[in-house]
Design a protein around this nucleic acid. Structure first.
Lengths: 213, 213
DNA sequence: ACACTTTCGGACCGGTCGGTACGGAATTGA
DNA sequence: TCAATTCCGTACCGACCGGTCCGAAAGTGT
């Protein structure tokens, strides 16, 4: 099990790979982000990755597996604000990190605008059903994360008793998704920042029924 | 120019069309709504329309023209709330009609959930660029409509002087888009109604910079 | 030097895409 | 009855899709 004094992996037999897999995955992520799952063709991907078809298949399995890995990279990188936000000390802090993260991630210089998950999922024939499910699942995870965090906030008295954690999470997801769509449509980061600031000004939102106070 | 006593068009020569073009367009709209532009294949469309390929081409030109006509039908029908909203007497009324319309239109029983414009546009390779531009243009028109309406509200004193009509319009579009995405992801109409009610509770949003009061 | 393993590029596979050519069917006016 | 006109189903076109096969290239250990 121990390698002894040699900490770096010994070179595997066979012809060594002629490209950096991490860098290639980064570029594949950008193409999926820009074009969606079905909109990103193999030639699109392999050209951006700088490798040939067969190299991609050998290194990543197939297009769907490549997408899963690109999505994981996305969730860990540009979209990490979702998981980060729930570490905030207050519900308001969660909302602020989440919404500002959505704006930043959707308007990153040098990256496609908007959100990979939305651009890749909203569409597609029956073939893309698996991918849509995968992305819906991922968004549900974020929603659940927020919901559980808000439930804790209610328990701690940080949010008023009777607040619906689910609804509050859905509220945040709604604004965040809207921000991503606006960014994808060309909205300026500064404008979106002002909008989420306004949303945060009225935090927490009044989610009680108007006729049932 | 006058037909005399015969008000209905005289039957044109040749074999009469074997289907109702309006009904066929309605069904095509639903397919585009459900699957997006590129996600809706000709077999998908013609099967739903109940006609053959050639009939569709003869009646509507081609796939892109069919989509344009379906979009026009959508804008005049389920998505008419955008144009309707600006007829309201107050800026608050505009916001209420717009947001409630977005919820209703995105959760119409018997129709696909979400918004046709978003489902059809967010994706696509280079081929769909024309369609994306078309849809972006349509959304920009709605945004401009709202913006001009809010400008008038500022002039009339209905909104505080110094309010940015553009930013207010973008704020509404952001929420509306978010609602549509949530609906497409399976959110319940009742939940979305509570969310837009909460947004309307804090109308107008505070869109001034926090450090520049 | 040699066997072995892995990478990599080009050719190729069946399937689907949007669009079209063509010929038979159905209706009008004469 | 018979041309003229229009609709519509079938078969087909070239292009592109994701995926695979195969042989040459480039490394390893012995």
């Amino acid at each position: 099990m121990l390698d002894g004094m040699d900490t770096q992996r010994s070179a595997p037999v066979g012809r060594p790979r002629g490209f950096d897999a991490d860098e290639a995955l980064e570029n594949a992520m950008r193409v999926f982000w820009q074009n969606g799952y079905e909109g990103a063709s193999l030639p699109d991907l392999t050209e951006a990755m700088g490798i040939s078809r067969t190299s991609m298949y050998a290194a990543f399995g197939n297009k769907e597996e490549l997408f899963r890995k690109a999505l994981a990279r996305y969730a860990d990188g540009p979209a990490s604000y979702g998981a980060d936000s729930v570490a905030e000390r207050t519900a308001r802090g969660v909302a602020a990190v989440f919404l500002r993260g959505a704006v930043r991630s959707s308007t990153l210089p040098g990256y496609p605008t908007g959100c990979l998950s939305l651009r890749a999922s909203v569409i597609g024939g029956e073939g893309g059903q698996t991918i849509r499910d995968l992305l819906a699942e991922w968004r549900d995870e974020t929603s659940t994360l927020l919901s559980e965090r808000f439930r804790r906030a209610v328990d701690e008295g940080d949010l008023a008793a009777g607040t619906s954690p689910d609804l509050l999470a859905r509220y945040l997801m709604t604004i965040g998704n809207g921000v991503a769509i606006q960014a994808a449509g060309g909205a300026e980061r500064a404008d979106l920042e002002r909008i989420v600031d306004a949303v945060l000004q009225s935090w927490p939102p009044d989610l009680s029924r108007p006729d049932e106070p």
